[in-house]
Simulated scan of single mutants.
Amino acid sequence: MSAGPLDPTPLVVGVDGGGSRTRVLLADASGKVLARIEGPASALQPGQESLAADVIKSLIGEALTTAERTETRPAVCVVGVAGAGQERAAQALWSALAQRRIADDVSVQADATIAMDDAFGDSAGVLLIAGTGSVAYSKGPDGRTERCGGWGPNIGDEGSAHWLGRRALSVITAAHDGREPETALTGAILTALELESLDDIIPWAAKATPSAYALLAPVVAQVAATGDLRANALISFCVEELALHVRTLARRCFTDERAAIPVAFAGGLLARGSLVRKRLEQRLKSAVPGATIRSEEVDAARGAVRRARRLLGVEV
């Protein structure tokens, strides 16, 4: 492929890599989107940066094919992926992507960084991400940035889809023992996992990935909507954990939770109209009274394109 800077209309790429899917936007220097591609997850796992790089390279290739620009190498590619907040992981992914020559210039960022670019640009605010994992980032009026959560599936990610699915399994096994009341979650989860009995949960859980657990979150929400007490308790617990992320950052960057604070949501668990989002918005009215919820959807891949254009030298 010919080098991007030699092309009269250089291309930029924005990549949003999560634990459940990866989204790629191919755009020209003006920001016009030429292709949108979605594919497998590319969140970083220790020692598996090359696998993530292969996914990203493949999807960028699909985007170039869709835009009929297969002979052009993009000038700038900004990749925002879950797990890239750790410097070692980010550097390993950058090296893998550079070896694959996906663009003339490659920048690797945490997924929250590119989401913040789309949500607030250069302004202050708090961004809460709850998908397979969870994390919150904030930028204060003084430009200072803070993070809350994002400690990964083994010791953190409270309020995430993975966290919710894993706790749902604990609820149904406890109900089976008689330690908790019966719940409709049992039948719904066995059906969703296509398992015969609760005994089959043990081998399933031994092999399950965080994204597999995350697939159970919609099941919990569906059962909660029918009025099931245990499912509703799980949703309430989830909402409290997420509200705590926002309140913590409100106090760190905006003096306290009563200050005027722009708040944006991202991630599948907080999609517009979802049960968790509806209840979280209601909970924040008391937990963070100064919060003003951004109604527009946050598009992290679009934020990555914005950052790529800035690296190209375009004012955005």
Rank of each mutant, 00 (worst) to 15 (best):
M1G: 14
S2I: 13
S2Y: 07
A3H: 14
G4R: 07
L11A: 01
L11M: 01
V12D: 10
V13K: 01
G14M: 04
S20H: 07
S20L: 09
R21Q: 14
R23L: 13
V24D: 03
L25V: 09
S30E: 11
G31Q: 13
A35F: 11
I37K: 00
A43G: 15
E49K: 03
S50R: 09
L51G: 12
L51S: 13
I56C: 04
I56L: 03
T66N: 09
E71L: 15
A75Q: 15
V76C: 07
V79N: 09
G80E: 04
V81W: 03
A84K: 08
Q91N: 15
A92E: 05
S95I: 02
A98G: 01
I102M: 06
I102N: 00
A103T: 11
D105Y: 04
V106C: 10
S107T: 12
S123K: 13
G125I: 06
G125C: 05
I129W: 06
I129M: 08
I129L: 14
G131T: 06
T132L: 10
T132Y: 01
T132H: 01
G133P: 06
S138P: 01
G143P: 11
R144D: 09
E146F: 15
G150Y: 02
W151R: 12
P153M: 02
E158M: 01
E158K: 04
S160A: 06
R166Q: 14
V171M: 07
A174G: 03
D177H: 02
R179A: 09
E180P: 00
L185Q: 06
T186F: 08
E194C: 13
L195R: 05
S197C: 09
D200C: 04
I201V: 14
P203Q: 05
W204G: 10
A205W: 09
A217F: 05
T226G: 06
G227W: 09
G227Y: 07
G227P: 01
A233H: 09
I235D: 00
S236V: 10
F237D: 15
C238Y: 04
V239G: 10
A243F: 03
T248D: 11
A250P: 02
F254G: 07
A259H: 10
I261M: 07
I261S: 05
V263T: 08
A266V: 12
G268C: 05
G273F: 06
V276I: 12
E281Q: 10
L284N: 10
S286T: 14
A287F: 06
T292R: 15
E296P: 02
E297W: 00
G303T: 06
A304L: 11
V305Q: 06
G313N: 09
V314Q: 12
E315C: 11
